[in-house]
Design a protein around this nucleic acid. Structure first.
Lengths: 212, 212
DNA sequence: TTGAGTTTGTTTTATATTTAACAATATCAT
DNA sequence: ATGATATTGTTAAATATAAAACAAACTCAA
């Protein structure tokens, strides 16, 4: 059973977490196997799409039977590298940074926030979720002394680009960007944008379309 | 100059906010016109895509000249209905709810949070950003007495589905969902998901691919 | 053990999206 | 005013994604 990506399209990759979530729920309901047809009805997709999505990574099902849920969960976790350990820092210790810290705490323990940073002296030198909040001036030194996998940006738009440059210059290879800044990165850096702007304006568009 | 949608594809719609943001920045830089070629270089797209995207809604440029930035901004705002007034409530007054409240405050004033709700008595009967935080038990009555356009869900996954049902049953037609719950809605309801899970696991996937 | 019924993996077809090409038309320097 | 240059809107081609179709292979009840 190989799970080597044959260069799967991004739309497929972005569906995998949804499969994962639904399969976990099924397992909790005590169900041990499922066909692409049943899963498709539950998730509002076509069975064909599910089979084809999974087949970008390998053949994990069995004719006449379907997919073993427990196995498939493990396969997907493997593909997405969910079970690796990720050391994170959060830049920005406002409500957004704290909300993200909570989110990661509720994950299954594979990702961990090791430090938070802020420019605001009123927020620094405190502890949140057992995490130290440092001043931004300490960032460079911190990154030298600690191996950090992911820098999470929870800063205002105005400082987004600058902070991104900062962390990249100090060795960060992956950014989860919650700021509304447009951040351009080189080819060796991975960035994932939460795009709250795009989301809100898409909603307002859909609302106006819905009224027609 | 008409801006009636010829049923534009969603990928096009989701690019419009990005055009909008870049055009606003250009205007701030004192630039008044731009060609699809120059804009494409700035945004990392193809000029062809920009021209075709815009042409789903109308012909806003001029041969040999390009696009008038100020006009184009207005057109996009019109398409996305950015300048309509949106009355919002936020369900969940934790860090996430507060972060969203801040985000909306930083918008240009067209969206407004009129109330927040929480189940936690420790959070209710307080004021944040001049907004009252009510107990969830008051939600139904509040929605009866106030015209709310958008319900923003900033609740834990466990209560996401239930809260969504609640607001829909009380007349809400549009939901901006920040919870990690999978929410199924009828055809007359608009929902936009922030999909934080999908985003994080896509990031971990990209990180592992980046290392290959 | 058999065979009707299931369900996969994969191929084929259809649809959606992006890119390229280019005629039509405007600009702008002279 | 003119024409070389720029740039659009739009059509055509290419690519990417999704759906349908189906042979192969398994399950499971009798």
């Amino acid at each position: 059973m190989q799970t080597l990506s044959k260069n799967a399209p991004m739309p497929v990759v972005r569906r995998l977490p949804k499969y994962h979530r639904n399969l976990k729920e099924l397992l909790e309901e005590g169900i041990t196997k499922i066909s692409s047809k049943d899963l498709s009805e539950r998730m509002g997709l076509t069975a064909s799409q599910i089979r084809q999505d999974l087949n970008y990574f390998g053949g994990f099902g069995q004719q006449g039977y379907g997919y073993n849920i427990e196995d498939l969960i493990k396969v997907i976790e493997d593909i997405l590298s969910i079970n690796n350990k990720y050391n994170c820092i959060i830049i920005g210790a406002g409500n957004l940074g704290k909300a993200i810290s909570n989110y990661i705490l509720n994950l299954d323990g594979n990702a961990k926030v090791l430090a938070m940073f802020d420019v605001d002296a009123g927020k620094t030198n405190k502890i949140f979720n057992d995490i130290n909040i440092y001043n931004m001036s300490e960032l460079k030194d911190y990154l030298k002394k600690n191996e950090i996998d992911i820098a999470i940006l929870a800063v205002p738009k105005s400082s987004g680009v600058e902070v991104a440059k900062d962390v990249i210059n100090n060795g960060i290879k992956s950014i989860w960007n919650f700021s509304t800044a447009d951040i351009a990165v080189g080819n060796d850096i991975v960035i994932e944008n939460m795009a709250i702007n795009e989301s809100f304006y898409t909603l307002t568009y859909l609302i106006s379309e819905n009224k027609k």
